[in-house]
Amino acid sequence: MSNDEGSPSGGGRRRPSPARASPLESEDTLSEILVRLPPAPSTLLRASLVSKLWHRLTSDPDFLRRFRARHRRNPPLLGFFIENSHGLYFAPALEPPDRVPGDRFSFPPMDDVSVGEWRFFKLREQLLSCRHGLVLRFHRMCLRGVQVWDPLTGDVSHISNPCKFNTDLVVVGEVLRAAGDVNGDGCSRHFEVVLLVTDLQNAQAFTSVYSSETGVWGNPMSIVCPSIWPVPTSGTLIGRSLYWSLLGEPHWLLEFDLDKQSLSVVDVKLLSPSVKGLIWIMLVDGVVGCLFLSVQDKIELWKRSSDYDGVAGWVLARAFKLDELLPPFKLDELLPVSANADVVKIVGID
């Protein structure tokens, strides 16, 4: 990072630099300025056109690492990956000029050999998880594996499945960056994939964890589900544990501790007869919480707590009237019962 700084005229440039503009002609001082620009998608593209030096700096891997590290805590939400009857696509969420076009993030092909004749069966493709800038994808007909994709770098990893799936099995999964082993930009190079497979006939759940560091799946763990129809919803990562809720009532969570590698069932016993459906698992006041729809168009946030005996129970943390938060709609449409229909769903809460 020390090419032509030090000389006020930016030595080596073919035109005289503007008067007193020397800090903008030196990589050291210029990088201090550009690294403080907001992390919007158009920012560095625009800066790159200002001059050749600016272009070189904004494409320098070291600078980009610093830029990412600096903004790691407040990255912009570029958009969503959406799964519907047309397949999977990217829907941008930002306004111009930061509206990244959908085809910028077109999905890479699944493992062609294994998908083979099934490649046109788009409906059987499932987007399992998006987290920490990674996307986890699965093709029901592709028995060979799951795919982890980094849309920003374009890196794709095909990972063999830990077991053979059949139609009696429900497969969900989560991807996350591994703890520790952090790069210069604050992101781990390695990732983990956790597959949760439930066997509806035998009411059993299995998990297995893949680590990109070791390149192998860990030993599968299994547990008997209390629910007679154990269809899990998408998972929530809280600390180093993943949580899935099981459809139906009473309400149960599956908890997988990534550090202890243990799978357990959590009974969400609420002292409330008014609750209708569990719609989201989230961090509430530092502990696991569940967001419920309740009668009278309310949303109730319950959190896990220990009572006097140290036994885990659940207490009401907050309640909201829905009509104060959202425009009018039919409450039933919020319940995550019909996974394939195009219905309104709460997909995130902050």
């Binding site: 625009r46 056109l49 930061d98 509206r99 990244v100 076009p101």
Partner: peptide, 9 residues
């Protein structure tokens, strides 16, 4: 460049 990344402008 602007032709390639038109959306950013």
């Amino acid at each position: 460049h602007m032709l390639e990344y038109g959306w950013a402008y």
